[in-house]
């Protein structure tokens, strides 16, 4: 069971959190100008890497804040935790 360091509350068991999947997926700013393919990419297509993965978690049974985690999907080791809008390792970040 993972232990996740909530940036607001500190380390807690995985059972307190809900998982939100891949982070930094940007909703197209003008959906009407977005092709069906690009919209499908936004909706469904995921990197799903074997290794380093930036993902969203929510401290659902705590502060209910969403935040970002960089985790290895094989070792499950957590490399970094950062707030929404914050700067992750390697420069990944959310839209302003």
């Amino acid at each position: 069971m993972l232990q996740i360091d909530c940036p607001w509350c500190g380390p807690r068991d995985e059972t307190e959190f809900s998982y939100g999947g891949e982070a930094h997926i940007v909703r197209p700013s003008d959906p009407d100008a977005t092709s069906d393919e690009a919209w499908a990419d936004y909706l469904f297509m995921r990197t799903n890497p074997r290794g380093r993965h930036a993902e969203q978690w929510c401290h659902a049974h705590g502060c209910r804040r969403w935040f970002n985690v960089v985790r290895d999907t094989v070792s499950y080791r957590i490399e970094a935790v950062y707030r929404i809008g914050g700067q992750g390792p390697g420069g990944s970040h959310d839209p302003a």
Binding site: G20, Q56, R64, I84
Partner: peptide
Amino acid sequence: LERWLQTE
């Protein structure tokens, strides 16, 4: 709703 507010 919370997720949209916080993340997007």
